[in-house]
């Protein structure tokens, strides 16, 4: 299957004036297959949103290659051609932030089609109908403004705005976090339907393991800027190898009270520490760390017998 997004050895460093530089993404590589969803998971500050923004061509990268639909993405965001931007659309956490509060949402959809030239003007109405239907939105909503919609409706309208542009690749950054559980459920099912019925691929940034399990075909786990484990969702979530991935998955509490209490009591006291100067960034928190973990930075290597499953930890392989 062809990759519609290829990321190779990408580094992103932030250099705020007067402050020390931060290496937000270090040597990240990944590939997103057409019609699938790849999830980036990890805690805040792990670099997952930064990597997603580099893929969108919104921030400059220091080195490495990014190819979108086979075309090389320029390093400088100013040089990214409009034609490339049209083919990938972002959906951010705050659904209202993507919708201009002054505009009726129907006009926002029209503008998106006009700017990107995705369909002929005569087809605007038909195109809107297709996506409003697919997303379960009533056409009456088109005359409303963003503040007249519920959180779930705003998020679906932001999705409609992304889809009328004809984009086949969505970059979803925490798409459900701002919604309550019933709306989350509905939105997860919509996203799955977009993938299955409409062939929409997505790069999903999330720390909602439930959503990742539900939607993503592949997962890359990031910690302090590096991808520490990757593979198909089933392998990574059912047979996690990296100690950080294991901790992350164990921290998702079950909804059965006895099991949740038992889990809470069994998880160790743990302090997020400063970034170490050398070695594996997770080593200071790791229960399995050995001497060399504090000296050498491990690189991703294949897990024996795991198809495409790779992990950056010398202790567990």
């Amino acid at each position: 299957m062809t990759s519609i997004l290829e990321v190779k050895d990408v580094d992103v460093t932030f250099r705020p004036s007067g402050l020390p530089a931060t290496r937000a993404v270090i040597g990240a590589s990944l590939a997103l297959r057409q019609g699938t969803s790849l999830a980036l998971v990890g805690e805040s500050g792990s670099g997952k949103t930064t990597l997603a923004r580099a893929v969108l061509g919104l921030i400059p990268r220091d080195s490495g290659e990014i190819k979108v639909f086979g075309d090389a993405l320029p390093k400088n965001p100013r040089e990214v051609p409009l034609a490339m931007r049209r083919r990938m659309q972002p959906l951010f956490q705050d659904p209202g932030a993507s919708l201009d509060p002054m505009w009726r949402v129907g006009d926002l959809l029209m503008e998106a089609m006009e700017v990107t030239g995705s369909v002929e003007q005569a087809q605007y109405d038909a195109e809107i109908s297709i996506w409003m239907n697919a997303l379960g939105l009533d056409r009456d909503l088109l005359t409303r403004r963003a503040h007249e919609l519920s959180g779930g409706q705003k998020q679906r309208m932001a999705l409609a705005r992304a889809l009328v542009t004809g984009a086949k690749l969505l970059v979803l950054d925490e798409p459900l976090t701002a919604l309550d559980p019933p709306a989350q459920r509905a939105a997860s099912e919509l996203l799955l339907n977009l993938k299955r019925a409409h062939g929409i691929s997505s790069l999903l940034v999330s720390h909602d393991i439930g959503l990742v399990r539900f939607l993503a075909d592949d997962v890359a786990v990031m910690y302090r800027g590096r991808i520490v484990e990757s593979g198909c969702t089933e392998d990574v979530l059912a047979k996690p190898k990296h100690p950080y991935t294991s901790l992350l998955l164990a921290s998702v509490l079950p909804t059965q009270p006895l099991a949740a209490r038992g889990r809470l009591a069994s998880l160790p006291e743990d302090h997020v520490t400063e970034q170490p100067l050398a070695g594996c960034a997770f080593a200071p928190r790791c229960l399995h760390a050995i001497a060399k973990c504090h000296i050498d930075t491990p690189s991703l290597s294949a897990v024996p017998s795991g198809a495409g499953h790779a992990v950056a930890c010398p202790v567990v392989v």
């Binding site: 019933p182 459920r185 393991i209 439930g210 959503l211 399990r213």
Partner: peptide, 8 residues
């Protein structure tokens, strides 16, 4: 329901 979609 949402908590159970991914079999959390």
């Amino acid at each position: 329901a949402h908590a159970s979609i991914g079999g959390r």
